[in-house]
Amino acid sequence: MARLRGRGYASVNYPTGMNLGGDPSQALIHATTTGTFVVSLSSVDLGQGLKTVVAQCAAETLGLPMENILVDTADTDTGPHCMGTFASRGTHRVGNAVIMAAAEAREVMLAVAAEELEVDAGDLETDGTGYIQVKGAQERRIHITDLALAAHFTHGRTISGRGMFLKEKNDPVPETGEMDPDSCQAHACTVAVVEVDDETGVVEVLEMHNAYEIGRALNPAMVAQQVEGGAWMGMSHALFEATEPYYPARDHGPRDFTEYLMPGAADIPAYHNAILERPAGNGPFGAKGIGEMTANAPIPAIANAIFDACGVRLDTMPFTPERVLRGLDELRGYHD
């Protein structure tokens, strides 16, 4: 018996946005009397961090600190329409809508500030800490709290903005498949290092190296969450998961987490990840969607690493010990 080591590669791309477009998302923003900006949406945060990342988009665009942003979402009575959270569209679609709404609100904010400071709106800038100030004369400034109060009680102005992102729906040409399916493409290359136990057929993933090009890392800690969580799911898909382990036979279906196997904390490899940024012209600050794709490249990288380790080509998922052993038996000339 031996533990055989191998290395496998895979490189992939992944589309951002609902396939073929036609998937709008809206955002509305308004300032309260004290200068908190409420971002109203109906978008859903599944745990990927949408609420956080769109608040960053709003803060950046308004030129205000994060503390001045509230996100109110996922209530169809109070939030404008969003197509939903899927197809790696949330950050891209909702982020763009929020930026558009925030840009409109910023314009009103600067217009009111111009009246208060008796200057031209074009001469104003935000300092990122809450002040709107005259360019080159920073002592002439007003804090957003005072400005919002003035807007309400002196000027009778609503500081608000509307935003919407829509990629127009495209219909494929049925004869050729000609179509415009996506907004942009993110990219990844994964290198997996595995060890195959040639007696048990068990595959252990020792290392995973992931290089991602994602346009812009809007929040690097949440990018790391997606990359690592996705790599784990890809490994899980590759080695364990099936609701019908002997597909197309319907039996032996797992019913709970004791039967539906997934890697545990003991099974995770050493990760080495790196990010490249080639901003997308249509992405929020250049960002592309990577919520889904992080599970993709690990699967073939592991398949290819298994072949490199022991010469067994697994063309059927998942790569269970049974399949590895049957492959090894075939290589050795055994048959059942």
């Binding site: 956080t52 608040a55 960053q56 988009c57 803060a59 950046e60 030129g63 600190p65 994060m66 990122g128 991602y212 812009r216 890392a217 809007l218 929040n219 690097p220 800690a221 990018v223 790391a224 990359v227 990840n273 790196a274 990010i275 490249l276 940024e277 080639r278 901003p279 600050f285």
Partner: peptide, 24 residues
């Protein structure tokens, strides 16, 4: 966080943001 390598697209302007690209 994962290191961002800017050497592969050297012509992209250096990011200049307040909160975008920051860990929030």
């Amino acid at each position: 966080t994962n290191p961002i390598d800017r050497t592969y697209f050297p012509d992209e302007p250096a990011p200049d943001f307040n909160v975008i690209g920051s860990v929030v």
